[in-house]
């Protein structure tokens, strides 16, 4: 029924005018080719081959065999370092988050209207983010010696970089209506920020902080590799002694903790926004 109607209509319609050519797909093909080329070039340069991967399979199986069953008794001695890892993440995230607030305000072009202020702030934040966590930790270990302090500092700066970046971009996207209204009531700059900006970003700020905490738990677990405290030290030790069953225990423990924290944090973040 529908079809015949459509056909009849089609016959009565005037012929179409000049139809523009559909856009060329050439660009997509070139992009695809470029990405494939890039993949092969990278593999060639790093001498990675599928052959090697397949030849390595039996080794992987052997390692898995040595890991199983995990050394269940080993959970007990790693509870304390695991708690230390969590504490490091809590402290690092908190300090970083607190410092991120003024910095992200300084980096936002709709709050600080002068380029002389917000460009250097952004440069500084970029610089912090460019240095990898492990390198930060290694630098702080060199300064403060082994232990949790360099780990906490590394996480503080990592959190600062991440939260500030997310936050200042959020600040730049806020509704400018309330800001205008606060200017109109005669608020000074600080009141303007607290009444116009802060309520618009506080939920985002909490969400970013929780997300950073999730990331920090995972980061904190490896910081011990460079001597910056936490569970990472035990990875190094057990791997060094080829105690793969114990490594398996640490991995399972870390996984459980990370999953619990990720799950809780995600749930809270869903409620926030």
């Amino acid at each position: 029924m529908m079809k015949t109607e459509w056909n009849q209509e089609k016959q009565t319609l005037k012929p179409l005018g000049h139809v523009p050519d559909p856009p060329s797909k050439f660009k997509h093909y070139v992009t695809a080719l470029f990405i494939i080329g890039l993949l092969f070039a990278s593999a060639y340069q790093t001498e990675a081959t599928f052959e090697e991967l397949i030849l390595g399979l039996p080794e992987m199986a052997k390692l898995m065999e040595q890991m199983l069953p995990p050394d269940w008794a080993y959970f007990e001695p790693i509870v304390e370092p695991m708690l230390e890892t969590i504490r490091m993440a809590v402290l690092g995230t908190t300090f970083g988050a607190i410092m991120a607030v003024p910095l992200s305000l300084l980096a936002a072009s709709n709050v600080v209207k002068s380029k002389i202020l917000f460009y250097p702030t952004r440069m500084f934040l970029n610089l912090i983010r460019t240095i990898p966590d492990l390198l930060k930790a290694a630098i702080f270990v060199a300064i403060f010696g082994l232990g949790a302090i360099p780990g906490i500092l590394a996480l503080t700066f990592f959190s600062l970089g991440l939260i500030s970046k997310l936050l200042y971009e959020t600040i730049e996207a806020i509704d400018k209506g309330p800001l205008e209204a606060m200017t109109a009531v005669g608020a000074n700059k600080i009141q303007w920020i607290f009444f116009g900006v802060v309520p618009q970003i506080s939920a985002h700020f909490m969400s970013y902080t929780l997300y950073t905490f999730e990331v920090n738990i995972r980061a904190a677990a490896v910081l011990g590799l460079v001597g910056a405290g936490g569970i990472g030290h035990y990875y190094e030790k057990t791997l060094g002694f080829l105690q793969y069953d114990r490594v398996a225990s640490i991995i399972i423990f870390t996984l459980v903790i990370v999953l619990i924290i990720d799950y809780t944090s995600t749930k809270i973040r869903e409620k926030l926004l």
């Binding site: 209506g177 209204a181 109109a184 009531v185 005669g186 116009g196 309520p199 618009q200």
Partner: peptide
């Protein structure tokens, strides 16, 4: 001076949250 002048906007300009 601004304190003594109230302003009403087309889009209300309240902090929604």
């Amino acid at each position: 001076i601004r304190r003594d002048i109230g302003m009403i906007f087309q889009n209300f300009n309240l902090v929604k949250r």
